[in-house]
Nucleic acid binder design. Sequence first.
DNA 1: ATAACTTTGTGAAGAATTTCACAAGCCTGT
DNA 2: ACAGGCTTGTGAAATTCTTCACAAAGTTAT
Lengths: 201, 201
Amino acid sequence: MYLRYLEDLDSRGQQTASSDELATLFGTTPAQVRKDLSSFGSFGKRGLGYPVHQLSDQLREILGLGHEWRVVIVGAGKIGAALANYHGFSQRGFRIVGVYDNSPSKIGQLWGDGTVVRDMSELEKDVAGNEALIAVLAIPADDAQVVVDRIIVAGIRAILNFAPTQLQVPAYVSLKTVNMAVELEGLSFALTNMGTEKGAA
Amino acid sequence: MYLRYLEDLDSRGQQTASSDELATLFGTTPAQVRKDLSSFGSFGKRGLGYPVHQLSDQLREILGLGHEWRVVIVGAGKIGAALANYHGFSQRGFRIVGVYDNSPSKIGQLWGDGTVVRDMSELEKDVAGNEALIAVLAIPADDAQVVVDRIIVAGIRAILNFAPTQLQVPAYVSLKTVNMAVELEGLSFALTNMGTEKGAA
DNA sequence: ATAACTTTGTGAAGAATTTCACAAGCCTGT
DNA sequence: ACAGGCTTGTGAAATTCTTCACAAAGTTAT
């Protein structure tokens, strides 16, 4: 998240930023910003603040964004389509190298941007060839675990999961699940308990 | 999240579940499960475990899912469309009562399921009429803050934000931001630092 | 060069969260 | 009815995370 704001500042030509300034921007405290950054190294200049552009570069390095990551999307439904067309991915160095589905009605379908939906059964061979390490999963919950097991064997090492289920993966595979219904339920809880608790910001 | 698994167990006809069993399911510890649940009340029966169905009901109550929430979607792009068609929402009591956009090419568009995209300028009137309290924001980052200010005035009290930006809202409004690029960057970090840290599960 | 001012980096204090461990309670056998 | 076996609920300990506060270091003005 820090990176996003630093790039913003950078594009506006700001040279340096103090922890105070960054904290207001991120909605946190100066001490937090300094602790967070210091855990990766000593980036700031005392009396001056943090060099915006240089810090951006270093964070990108730390996050492993120095090179392009190849990503496959599994599931060519509505969510898969939205993700495939999402510019935010390509802008940040994630190149979508394939979209897969197992439904005959979807396979071969040509999307607006030239992507052709491929058969799941080709995934193994493709992943071996293009060395994709990241998969985005946009398939029904019931199919998710078997597909996960399969793509891990194929070589995938990180999964962004949109299926509303908890998945089992070995320790050497990173998994991040995004569950939109759960997010909405969190809002429902907040609305319901507004008076009782302090309101979330 | 607990609720999701409890419903799963319930639908399989399981009567009770121990904290141990739930913990394995959620990927946490039995002590954590007991602490979490006990913070809302005393649901379990000693020697037996938690009554699955009854606990589901109580959690739904706590989360405020006892009634239908009316939701508006702002932004009729790819993401907005995917969300509008996402069955997970309606399945869990969130009814989409309107989709809005300010682009003339989108307004009036009829989607497959009968939804008609309406002009942003009608949002205020509509929200007053249908008493929607929750908005899903699927618009470009640059427009997000002005739209947020506007829908809050209109009466929205909770926002699920898909725009890649930090938004300012008053304390009485709940905000949850989902940023898919940030999630992917988290995976990139995990992949890059696999050997150094213990792998994320 | 020096003084006054700013801001980082970081130990130490404080707060919050998680884990431990066990008494108390409930169920099932006999 | 009672003993033996599980499992919860919860204080207390351990751990993790956040905030405080200040010395050290850099900048600016004179």
